[in-house]
Design a protein around this nucleic acid. Structure first.
Lengths: 117, 117
DNA sequence: CAAAATACATAGTTATGCAATGTATTATAT
DNA sequence: ATATAATACATTGCATAACTATGTATTTTG
């Protein structure tokens, strides 16, 4: 009994991390559409506001990929006290790309609703 | 101009295939909740009804993973004419697992709506 | 009778999330 | 005073899953 439950739970946990592939990119770009934020803040905020937990080892490589793809840029902001923060900004290419992604996401959501009735 | 557009398009295409990770599992299990189907039929039907295209090289390994995890079972059905078809059926474990997945998916959808306003 | 459609399947490539680990600074608690 | 936790960014290696290309075999269509 317990064994089967644990088996299920690990499957669901693995699935959740698979669902994040792509989804996290979409979430980050969406939030950047209306805000500038730095990494640590973003991870904490998303954890508080939503069901989504993002590991640091996921977030920083993700942002570097988005920078390499020219979808976001970044700037270091010195603090009066404390460690400097790296803020991320959506580029024009990022905005254009996001629009295409939003269109696909909406279709996908509708499709899944249709399928699951 | 064209160059940038193509760059964007390949990024979006790669992103779409990343979004499918996990999502396809969810879709398959949802559809199996109310139907039995065989592979080729499922791929074609989903293509007609939704925005989702599933490569055969994605589908068959996916179903074998789900069988290995005991979420689905399968049975060969001989045809009066033509190649036999392998039908897939949701198991009890599959039903339980799907309920957990549906709960997470709903939270995720809501979160994304909240984030993108 | 050749080509397309039906039907299932696998190997290798590619991309991404995560745990573990690292560096460095600042705030808090004992 | 000083150890611990919190803040802040970052990388390495592993596991997982989608896709392309390819394969087999049968049936239908042009």
């Amino acid at each position: 009994m317990l064994y089967i439950y644990i088996m299920n739970e690990t499957f669901v946990n693995k699935w959740k991390s698979q669902v994040k592939k792509g989804t996290l990119t979409f979430i980050v770009l969406n939030v950047l559409q209306e805000n500038e934020f730095y990494g640590y803040e973003f991870i904490e905020e998303i954890k508080k506001l939503t069901a989504i937990e993002i590991a640091e080892g996921t977030f920083y490589p993700l942002m570097n990929r988005l920078k390499k793809e020219n979808l976001v840029s970044s700037k270091w902001i010195e603090q009066e006290s404390g460690i400097p923060r790296k803020y991320y900004i959506l580029t024009e290419t990022g905005k254009d790309t996001l629009i295409q992604m939003q269109s696909y996401w909406e279709d996908l959501s509708k499709s899944i609703k249709k399928i699951s009735q």
